[in-house]
Amino acid sequence: MPAPPAEPTVHVVSPNPAQDRLQVVPRLVVGGVHRATEVVSRPGGKGMIVARGVVRLGGRAALHGFVGGSVGAQISAGCRELGIVDRHVPIAGETRVTTVIVDQASGGSTVVNEPGPEVTAADVDALVDGLLAAVQPGDLVVCTGSLPRGVPADLYARCMRALRGREVVTLVDTSGPGLAPAVRAGPDVLKVNEDELRADGGLADPAEDVDLPTLMERALHAGAAAVVITRGAAGLSYRSATEAWDVASPSVPVVNATGSGDMMLAGFATALARGDDRATALRTGAAAGAANAARLEPDISGTAVDELVAGAVATAVPEVRA
């Protein structure tokens, strides 16, 4: 008998990984001296959080990015421990550390992101070539996170263009200079929050008063096939030329919301990889984001997500204005 078709892989392109160091303090006071009550150090960055979420939900994930030095070695070791395929490109610089200070009194988080190492043009070429060699028809490619020094702003757009015709689903979640070219490169799904789209999408003049539905419509006309806007505890909105959904987020006691947007993307991508329709995938994404917010460290369990899906209510929006 012929072998069954391989399960789709979610390839996560995240050029600027980090080692996350979470420190919990009773109350954060700017300028004060604090004694941490709990410290957690683990491989992180947006791409690692997405890939970890995919694996936790029973999917297959591969990570593509740049790692260097002793911190980079910890990132690669974390991939092996989680069962994530490690496709990072080794570089000469040192991978960054991200410090997250969790205020126990308020539940708020203060994040300090290091800029990341310097990357060469040859390193960038190696990443793109490795991605193209790894993807198979039916796979998903998620481009997420910031770009380290030396990486051109159009890296994600370059990946989108190179993947055309390869029968893969492309998703982009970024901000800053890389967002506008990525939108125009035509991803299958653009996932951002409203502030990122408004500031970096190149879709509106800063002085222009544009409402969110119009901004999403402009993103569709600019090239994105679908747009997901995340709104934290308020849920998310989805628009394409044929579908429009608003999804309520399940209610959970928030411990640390850091990474919840990334876990939403992990849930959404994993559901798409297993063949779910868009509404079901969005509900899974909302449940994954909520499950993450209920934990100290960015992580989820499949059981927690399953329990929360019922509280992620998807409502069809009557008019599609694309």
Score class of each variant (00 low, 15 high):
R96G: 01
T99G: 06
I84M: 02
A61V: 05
R80Y: 13
F66P: 07
H64M: 04
I91Y: 01
R52V: 09
V89C: 08
R87T: 14
G59C: 10
A105T: 11
T99C: 04
L82P: 00
V67E: 06
Q74D: 05
P90I: 01
D86C: 06
Q104D: 09
G65K: 14
V112W: 14
A92N: 07
E94C: 06
I49F: 14
A77L: 13
T99S: 15
L63D: 02
A77D: 07
V67R: 11
G58H: 05
R52Q: 09
G107N: 15
P90N: 05
A73Y: 04
D103Y: 04
G44C: 12
N113M: 12
D103I: 13
S76M: 15
A62S: 09
G45D: 12
H88T: 14
R87K: 12
V102S: 14
I91C: 10
V54M: 02
G44P: 12
R87P: 13
V54G: 00
G68H: 13
R80I: 07
D86F: 08
I91K: 00
V102M: 03
I101C: 14
G69R: 03
S106H: 10
G68R: 11
I84Q: 01
R87M: 05
L63R: 07
T110Q: 04
Q104T: 10
T95D: 07
A61I: 06
G93D: 03
K46T: 05
A61P: 00
D103P: 11
R56S: 12
V102T: 15
R60L: 05
V54S: 04
P90T: 06
V55K: 02
E114C: 12
V97C: 08
P90C: 06
V97W: 11
I49A: 12
E94M: 05
G68N: 13
V89N: 00
H64Q: 00
V50P: 02
L63W: 05
D103R: 06
E94R: 03
G53H: 07
V111S: 15
V112L: 09
Q104A: 04
G53Y: 01
S70H: 14
T95Y: 13
G45C: 07
A73G: 13
G78Q: 10
A62R: 07
A62Q: 02
P90R: 02
G58V: 06
R52G: 05
C79K: 03
G44L: 05
V50Q: 00
F66I: 06
G93Q: 14
L63K: 06
G93A: 12
S109G: 11
P115W: 09
G78L: 03
C79G: 03
V85K: 10
S70Y: 15
V100H: 15
I84R: 00
M48Q: 04
G93E: 07
G72D: 06
I49E: 11
S70T: 12
S70C: 12
A77G: 11
M48I: 08
A51G: 08
V111N: 02
S106G: 14
